[in-house]
Amino acid sequence: MQNAIELRGLKKRLGNFVLGPIDLTVPRGCIVGYIGENGAGKSTTIKLLLHLMFPDEGEIRLLGKDVQEFTPQMKKDIAYVFDDLYLPEDMTLNNVQNFHRKLYGQAWQDKTFADLVARFNLPDSKSIKHFSRGMKMQLGLALALSHGARLLLLDEATSGLDPVIRDDVLDILLDYIQNENHTVFVSSHILSDLEKVADYIAFIHKGQLLFMETKDDLMNQYGIASLSEEQLEELDDMAIVGKRPHQFGVEVMLKRELVPSDFELEKVSIEDIMVYMIKGKRK
């Protein structure tokens, strides 16, 4: 079985910032949330995947092939949506469609595109200069999904959009993933959406990949408790992932397996995990 993404010892230096070395494997047919703070290295990773940047060390394989050996034909298998459309503003939707028809040739699917455009209710003769940010992202997504790509990369694509549009995007990603050969890799620092649909969460902090795990395992692994200082003292230090002390006690995220089973723990969200882990790192 071929993996969608394989990173081996990937390393990239940009001034003072160092990304990696990152080892990461994304199996086919799943949605991966690639999360981390702003500046953690999410966009750099995606640019490396897309060959917009070149790694200092390591290997990148997409759909089983080294990205250095990608031909234009093979690149049609990869789709991508950024936080902006990156197309000339004076183009209209019709222009953009013609452009992609010529660009992707046989692989271009007029019907898929038309359906998505209708679903999003995008105007076809207005130049994209007049599109809202949400409309630009929707157009980007429609373009990305209309050439039969097997791997979809989203880089902060839905950040800053309203909840209704983000919710639509989730539906579309879930539709896309109905084909088990399709894979989605989403980078984001907004997590509530991802929580619903992601199969795996990969967490990057200051250029280092802290973990990549199935979301279900992750959510079961940790719990949150509100404790007094005394109760905190009694706990195994190893069990504490991060804490938020306040005037009336302390809130902690704990590893469930390292605390007594009768301990009352609340469920965590991915956002909790991210916040507490980063706070835990700071101390």
């Binding site: 799943c30 879930l174 539709d175 993933i177 109905q178 199969d199 795996y200 199935t214 279900d216």
Partner: peptide, 17 residues
């Protein structure tokens, strides 16, 4: 598995399990 995950909006791994 995939359809159920889509409709319930949960991960495919969850429905598979």
């Amino acid at each position: 598995i995939r359809f159920l995950a889509k409709e319930l909006r949960v991960s495919v791994i969850t429905t598979k399990r």
